[in-house]
């Protein structure tokens, strides 16, 4: 019980170590989501609009990859970036950049698959109307992304929730280096095993509050969007 109290005290006192860790976690996960969004939103939209042989297989694989085990993604990126790997020259292993890369790869299928689903529903509705208005291909993608923007915000938030809560990839490619690549989740894992429960609990509390905040935002956006755009 006393650890929980200490944990709250750490939070309340604005403990520097604790908030540095929170800051890094947020920076890594937010960057990863932005990167995954830049690739995943158009990718999902294009997949929704096009018909080509092998598309069904691609959709199935993409949906399956939503549940990709973080440790496997971490391992793959590790192999890519390790000294002897194909991208070893870059010296990125055990840096925040490596963590961003790994989390972006983890989240990309989630964003692309959910975008595909959202945009395809709208496309079925819009298809004839847009064809009749002579809307070109690139404009269709832009129109559909824009008109489903509120649903897509929740897609991005889902991606962020996943990135912020996972431990496997950042542990493997970040290396959990004190003051450099230590995130909320990896710190919780480490400090718990060391018996330093106060910091672990403090971070756990913040992590849960964050996840709640993300979900509340997603919900708020949806309600607001329905009210505004019908």
């Amino acid at each position: 019980m006393s650890e929980t109290l200490t944990a709250w005290q750490l939070i309340a006192s604005g403990d520097a170590t604790l908030f540095a860790i929170v800051g890094l976690s947020l920076a890594v996960s937010l960057t990863a989501v932005v990167v995954a969004g830049i690739v995943g939103l158009p990718l999902g939209a294009i997949l929704a609009l096009t018909r080509f042989p092998g598309r069904a297989a691609m959709v199935v694989v993409l949906n399956g990859f939503m549940g990709l085990p973080p440790v496997v993604v971490g391992l793959s990126v590790y192999l890519l970036l390790s000294r002897s790997g194909p991208l070893g020259e870059l010296g990125l292993l055990f840096t925040p950049t490596a963590m961003v890369t790994a989390q972006a790869l983890l989240v990309l299928p989630i964003i692309a698959a959910l975008t595909r689903h959202t945009v395809e529903d709208l496309w079925l509705e819009y298809r004839e109307e847009l064809s009749a208005m002579g809307v070109g291909w690139a404009s269709r993608v832009a129109t559909l992304l824009w008109d489903s923007r509120f649903s897509l915000v929740t897609v991005l938030l889902a991606g962020f929730g996943r990135a912020a809560a996972e431990v496997g990839t950042v542990m493997i490619v970040g290396g959990n280096i004190d003051g450099f690549t230590r995130t909320m989740t990896t710190t919780i894992a480490l400090e718990t095993s060391r018996g330093n429960l106060a910091l672990a609990i403090g971070l756990g509390i913040i992590l849960i509050l964050l996840i709640l905040l993300v979900n509340a935002t997603a919900w708020g956006v949806r309600v607001w969007a329905v009210e505004r755009a019908g």
Binding site: L122, E125, Y126, E128, E129, A132, T143, D147, S148, A229, G230
Partner: peptide, 11 residues
């Protein structure tokens, strides 16, 4: 064309 069930854009 004006469709029998026209679709409004979300705008």
């Amino acid at each position: 064309i004006l469709f029998q069930k026209p679709v409004m854009l979300r705008r």
